[in-house]
Write a protein that binds this DNA or RNA. Structure first.
Lengths: 336, 336
DNA sequence: TTGAAAGCGCTAACAT
DNA sequence: ATGTTAGCGCTTTCAA
């Protein structure tokens, strides 16, 4: 348990009677160097257990080769998948991942962004919870690219983003519901100041209007994407004098909460109230009922976001903003 | 979109007619400095949007104030929760998180460890997939602490670790099963070269032996913690001439796979075969049947691991190894 | 109380 | 083909 000093380039150089720069070149493969010395150096590196100090390299290169990822909740399987996707392409391209959870807290998000800045990340993948203009400007003025996922700021075209066609997803989901014969449909929306929440709400509205189905205010509640609000709001909706026959719920957690409430009230899905949702992927395949759901392709969002980011980082010329909008993936269920 | 040069300490110093060291002291609060200049500096920092370069600081301080976390699969809700726990403590104490997924691949794990080394992490939280002795030694010789979670290496007492009492968990689970009247019990184990897999198997054995229940080789199969192996092995077990009445399955994914197989074979849980498992937490609470399960306290594992790590990092004197063994948390279900 | 200067480990321009 | 040297942005002795 000797607290051994780490081997530095200088140590290797000394041992081999070479200069640091020669050793450095031997490692990087850049610059002219004779095959003999190169082999000699590489051998010495192996047996000395040399580990390059990437902090020093980052400082010198003015590039830490790392990507920051800020999500609201890593425990949400959607974000976990996004991260997994982003991580896999990052590794491939030689970038490491700095991770932060914002816990849906705008203050934590700001802190995390500040941290990323200080750590000199090469770029950021951000699932933002709200308006964080000043910090975003700071990234921009330092020319550190951000790719927005899930929620996108306005106007979208002045940022990079990877998102899902939420309007369409909600529109389709609602239309299917109507085609199944439901007309009295309520909704538990997400926060309407977040693009995902708002777009899903608007898609719902469009479909309802187009099919001449009634939009009743007491059937529509704005939640916060947390399970708790799903529980509370579903109860409120079901306790109206004349509750709807179906409810669309804007994300997975609120749906789980809502389902809990429905069970507790002794009602059944879909007989008493039908449910349709977003992003309720079920790794267990034990759910009952299975929830009809429009899902964002999470892993793909992660890989695409990382690709767009790295692409921009390695581009020779300024690139136009990329606004990738992926198709939602529908999975049917017996919740309706 | 001016690619503005970041403000450095030197720029601030110039602007204020001070030296860099004075500005640095003003920021850090260390060292004598007059209140006036201090205020002056702080004001300038605010309005100039100065962002300290942490890479430079890390190099100078020989401490990156970051913690590496390597897990096998961030998509597994167990690990996601571990990370969440670790992250929250880390943030509090001023450490950032470098994340890597090993995808249950020992080669990726080794690569990730190498990366962490190069990035000069202050410490590592490692959910190891297998024997990775040399790399572990490297951390040790560089005096970079590792806290093992989930799987622990042998001999456990020469490492820091946070784990769950897997033997006990399996023993209790098996005993309960027996007390419910089951005697013909099979098991789909995890990899027996991983401590979690092995200990759960041994706990099962102990309980079976102690209660004089039969251990039949054809009812016991070694899986790899993936869903696929749960599917395959459950089929194999059920296709034996005389299948068991209950099967204990060593983790969540294999259980989901096994349940799928059981359904596909047109059998029912628990009437045809009862199930008991580990770590099957169900965020949806929609599972049917709900799975009786012994769960690791995931978030707590994460927080404790981070605490132990940071504690060691900030200790003045060498600390003895910490081997925290947490109690499993039982959640009943109607799978038995 | 403040400033000058060294140096963390590395890369790269320049010199040999 | 190899060596010398400057310098990335910061902290911290040491000197003024």
């Amino acid at each position: 348990m000797n607290k051994q000093k780490p081997v530095r380039l200088r140590d290797l150089a000394f041992e081999l009677n070479l200069s640091v720069s020669t050793v450095s070149r031997a490692m990087s493969g850049k610059g002219r160097i004779s095959d003999k010395t190169r082999a000699r150096v590489l051998k010495a590196i192996k047996k000395s257990n040399y580990t390059p100090n990437d902090v020093a390299r980052s400082l010198r290169m003015q590039n830490a080769m790392s990507i920051g990822i800020i999500v609201t909740d890593i425990t949400n399987s959607f974000f976990a998948s996004v991260i997994k996707g982003a991580q896999s392409v990052s590794r491939e391209k030689g970038y490491s991942i700095l991770l932060s959870n914002s816990d849906e807290n705008i203050l934590y998000e700001a802190e995390a962004m500040q941290l990323m800045l200080e750590k000199q990340v090469s770029g950021l993948i951000l699932a933002s919870v709200g308006n964080n203009g000043p910090r975003i400007d700071q990234f921009r003025s330092l020319n550190i690219p951000i790719v927005f996922i899930d929620n996108t700021p306005e106007p979208i075209t002045s940022f990079d983003s990877v998102s899902t066609d939420n309007h369409k997803a909600a529109y389709c989901l609602t239309t299917r519901l109507i085609e199944k014969g439901y007309r009295e449909i309520g909704m538990i929306t997400g926060p309407l100041n977040q693009s995902s929440g708002r777009q899903r709400y608007e898609g719902f509205q469009s479909a309802m209007n187009e099919h001449g189905a009634p939009l009743r205010a007491e059937w529509i509640r704005e939640g916060d994407f947390q399970m708790e609000s799903g529980m509370v709001l579903m109860r409120r909706i079901l306790e109206t004098a004349r509750p709807p026959r179906a409810v669309i719920i804007s994300n997975n957690y609120m749906t789980y909460g809502a389902a809990k409430t429905i069970k507790r009230m002794g009602k059944s899905i879909p007989d008493d109230v039908a449910l349709a949702s977003f992003d309720t992927d079920d790794p267990t395949s034990l759910s009952s009922p299975t929830i009809a759901s429009m899902n964002q392709p999470a892993v793909e969002i992660g890989t695409k976001a990382a690709e767009i980011l790295i692409n921009r980082l390695t581009a020779k010329q300024p690139l136009p903003h990329a606004n990738l909008v992926l198709e939602p993936v529908f999975t049917d269920g017996d919740s309706w």
